[in-house]
């Protein structure tokens, strides 16, 4: 941009860091208060009687299966840790992918 913006604006880096902190809090802490009820599809499958056609999940043995951390007793800690692991894994893949795909040269 050739002329400065009328007022100081939040830098992209600052926005992204603040956003990531919010995401970590949502997945790591707030998730403990999420509803444990089946979701819409699961509920419909249960009511109409086709939930049983679901087969064992291929990664049911994953240490973080069903958003829990195997070996961690406290459900809050177990779910929170799994959420944080997910945030980190998605962040590494997504930021990496978008960085590789971006057009270069248009700086802020």
């Amino acid at each position: 941009m050739s002329t400065p913006a009328p007022r100081a604006r939040v830098s992209t880096a600052r926005l992204v860091v603040a956003g990531l902190v919010v995401c970590a809090l949502l997945a790591g802490v707030v998730s403990a208060w999420a509803s444990g009820h089946p979701d819409g599809l699961e509920h419909v499958a249960e009511t109409l009687g086709f939930l049983d056609s679901a087969t064992e999940h291929g990664t049911a043995g994953s240490p973080f299966a069903d958003y829990g951390t195997s070996g961690v007793e406290s459900p809050r800690l177990s779910g929170g840790l799994a959420g944080l692991v997910g945030v980190v894994v998605v962040a590494v893949i997504a930021f990496g992918l978008m960085h590789l795909l971006r057009r270069r040269g248009s700086d802020d």
Binding site: L15, C23, G86, F95, G105, D108
Partner: peptide
């Protein structure tokens, strides 16, 4: 997606993926 992504928007795209993951953990009744 290359046309949509540049040095400014790529970080926001990363953040959006992370936010969708986090928000999908928050089932609401």
């Amino acid at each position: 997606a290359r046309r949509e992504l540049d040095d400014r928007t790529a970080p926001l795209a990363g953040l959006v993926a992370v936010f969708v993951f986090a928000a999908q953990m928050l089932n609401f009744p």
